[in-house]
Write a protein that binds this DNA or RNA. Structure first.
Lengths: 179, 179
DNA sequence: GGAGTCATGTAAGTTGTTACATGATTCT
DNA sequence: AGAATCATGTAACAACTTACATGACTCC
């Protein structure tokens, strides 16, 4: 990809909330940022090892596995990474690509595509409702405010998808069945 | 990435609109789907060569370069690819990742991030206005309807970003300057 | 004649996914 | 006892980006 190593940022960020195991890093990201981010184990463990070697995190044996904690150098590294200008990945939206060539696919199949997308937005909205409740239950803090900002972004995005999908379904109904 | 080869779909789709050069494939995608898709030359030319070898496109020498046209087999392949279930790429939204750890970055830097994002949405909206006018100027067809659907998706998305960004900026104003 | 655009490709590098492999706890 | 979850890693692989290299044509 020849793109910036963004996993460092995600892992360091997760550990900035609290020390945890590699497994917990993944679960934490999944639960709270699932809408916007994902990490695989195949990426997390090597990253953790690299960060440990670089003195950015320390490993402490505990229970069945290990708990990783941010060092001062690690926190500095996190701040440095956060401050670097974002290099957004080139867009790749499979749904839009398919829909744009919808005349080859036909309205019926396109309807299915849009309905699936709509359904996943509904599901996302339900997940965000839970996430919002969880975050709001935390004791007030700066981090809470930032977390709510991302939840809100998810909500705005999901509602936009709903509105668009309903509009799109209405348009598709007007289209003839043959391509 | 170990993910599906989506470039075939994009290239075949572009050629389904009209025969064109590899260069024009990239420019076409850029202009009309730039919001949602991108292809690099390093990906387009090898793909074109592969599709030619597979009998999905034919190359005709013309002017300074070549013009590639879809064969019947190519059109069938395109329909096949379009019909396959979409395997959405894992989400990776750098802005949300950064914002979620905003307490480490501080409100001022976060403001910049959000403002940049807002500005790019404004720019996207302007681009979409042009795209909409261009598509609406075409003679009415199924393809036109589908193209308008994707333009509309862009508009809904961009407006959602604007609404969220304004909300987020108001929240950030309330936050203390220290992290 | 120089700049910009049109045009086609190759090579290197890396991020990140998927699949495999293994085992300890905990719950039912 | 078996299933699910917690936990840690490795290896193979590929999709894709970036940078490099080259050249024709057109416009000023």
């Amino acid at each position: 990809m020849a793109r910036e190593r963004q996993t460092d940022l995600a892992v360091l960020g997760a550990l900035s909330i609290a020390p945890m195991s590699g497994y917990a890093v993944r679960e934490g990201i999944r639960e709270v940022l699932g809408q916007f981010w994902s990490e695989s184990f195949g990426q997390i463990y090597p990253t953790l090892a690299r960060l440990e070697a670089g003195g950015h995190v320390v490993r402490r044996s505990e229970g069945r596995g290990s708990v990783f904690a941010l060092t001062e150098a690690g926190r500095a590294h996190l701040r440095d990474l956060l401050g670097r200008p974002e290099t957004p990945a080139p867009p790749r939206n499979g749904l839009m690509l398919r829909l744009f060539f919808g005349h080859e696919l036909g309205p019926t199949a396109c309807r299915v595509l849009v309905e699936e997308h709509r359904a996943s937005a509904v599901q996302a909205l339900a997940g965000l409702e839970v996430a919002r409740a969880e975050v709001e239950a935390e004791r007030p803090s700066d981090h809470q405010a930032y977390a709510l900002l991302t939840v809100s972004a998810g909500e705005h995005g999901a509602r936009a998808i709903l509105a668009w999908a309903d509009e799109a379904l209405a348009v598709l109904d007007q289209l003839p069945a043959s391509s």
